Amino acid sequence: MLTKLERASGLDRVGDRIQSGVFAVLRGQRVRDFLHGVWLGHPLHPALVQLPVGAWVSGAILDLLPGQRRAATVLVAVGTASAVPAALAGANDWASLSREQRRVGLVHAMANTVGMALYAGSLAARLSGRHNVGRLLGFSGLAAASSGAYLGGHLAYKQAAGVNQGVHELHRIEDGWHPIAEVATLPESTLLTRQVDDVPVVVFRDGDEITVMLERCAHQSGPLGEGRVTRVDGRTCVVCPWHGSTFMLNGGEVVRGPAGTDQQVLPTRVVSGVLQTRLP
């Protein structure tokens, strides 16, 4: 069923318009980077969803217990309010996904939007004294949000949306030190692509500092070896040619999204003039 959803090209017409709208609203790079979680070094959306989901589930439990109307109402209010920033961060991440991921993500967002609307109605009913209606709307909202969470799990675990796309390459590298190149042959300030056990890595020399990092971008596996070198806040960085994710070449820290995680850098050493690298 979900495979069919991934291939449902009919969703693209709506999805493309919403994507353009998201980019139009979130135009500032700093705003997008904040919502991607660049400052955190971790995607922000999955961290934010813990509060509304936790509050809503706790509220549903209290709705099943006697004498807990006020506490349940407070939890519904907290969950509904905190769902707004979580949805905003999610929309920002969604707009930078691949087309098949956006199709599933669109339905994921629709289910969560229905859940938010039902919980907003539940809160209004509770505040007006109609607690039975509020409970019914709350349980319905939880069902909708749970459906959205299921689709979110499919996005993360099956489609690898928002996860570091390069880390799995580490599992293909054997233990021990691997020769890369003779240091004397490495040009200054030039991105080079080399292989470690058939895994592509980027080699960059800046004076006496030499960086070896995984070549596939953490965001969507873009070829960093074909990227460009730039300076951000005085630090030398590489910019992915696909979506513009920017990483420090000395350390791999992400400085601009849409990537929300750092790029994996490998340890290096020089033995008899030969640059070597190994697993972290």
Rank of each mutant, 00 (worst) to 15 (best):
L88C: 13
W94H: 02
R70T: 12
V78E: 07
G54C: 14
A72E: 13
W94A: 07
A91K: 05
Q101F: 01
A83T: 06
A55T: 00
S96L: 04
A60G: 06
R103D: 09
G79I: 00
R99T: 14
R70P: 06
V84S: 04
A72F: 06
V53I: 15
R103K: 10
A60L: 13
A60R: 00
A71Q: 14
Q68E: 14
W56P: 09
A89H: 10
L88W: 00
G79Q: 10
N92F: 01
G90S: 13
L62N: 05
S58H: 05
A72R: 06
S82V: 08
A72C: 11
G59A: 13
L64E: 08
A72D: 00
L62M: 07
R69T: 07
L88I: 13
L65Y: 02
R102S: 12
L88G: 06
L75T: 05
G54Q: 13
L64Q: 14
P66I: 11
L97Y: 15
A72M: 01
L64W: 08
G54S: 02
D93T: 05
N92W: 02
D93F: 08
T73Q: 09
A95I: 14
V74C: 13
G59T: 02
G79K: 08
S58D: 00
L64I: 02
W94K: 04
V53P: 14
W56L: 08
A87K: 11
S98T: 15
T73M: 10
